[in-house]
Amino acid sequence: MTGDETAAPTAPAPAAAALTVRNLSVTYGNVVAVHGATFTVTEGDACAITGPNGNGKSSILMGVTGMVRRHGEVTIFGTPARNGDVRWAARHGLTLVPERRQLYPDLTTADNILLGCYTWTRSIGKARRSDSYTRAVDLFPELKPHLKQAAGTLSGGQQQMVAIARGLAAAPKILAVDEPCLGLAEAIAKRVYDVLAQIHADGTTLIVVEEAPRRALALCNRRVEVRNGMAGAA
């Protein structure tokens, strides 16, 4: 019943495995959301995780990043990941941009992005001066006029960009983006994907969870299909 993983089709020379997931299961109470998912993401990949709603795509990311406790093996750049430890995953290069953005609505846009740095520092000065923070802010010129504004007052598309910027402020080597276009108009969704393409081009490995595979597939070179909580390469 377990999904099989075949070698990544577009990688003739064996690149380093950025993320290896073997036999991952996630349960909420007695509800099994993910069951025996196995796949590998190679460094430099842009990997789409696709499949219908409610089939456990998001739960895979939640389990891999440590937001929920999991069973099974996850290794990030060769090191076995600690279970349920988001900070560990972030420090080893894996950051999540969650579904529905999960911003802090009463904090300013700038503070929302700045808190991405919390994964690696406690000093506000270091965070403000860091490359990752400046790059994250610079990537979104449309956010510049709103930096002092409460994030809850931004439009849906702007909030999504803040969430991505916050993820980038953590200086990730792998950015896992969950449903980046949820509830966004077509034009804004396109802008979000343009930004993701740029992030990928800058050398960050991408994992994108997407319900509608069309947009994701234009960007991604690999795809993991999830059905009934079971993942396999497609």
């Binding site: 969650p98 802090y104 904090l107 919390y118």
Partner: peptide, 15 residues
């Protein structure tokens, strides 16, 4: 502040 406003969002950045 962040953990008060959105605890899921706070855990995402390792708080």
């Amino acid at each position: 502040e962040a953990s008060g406003e959105n605890s899921t969002g706070a855990r995402i950045v390792g708080i």
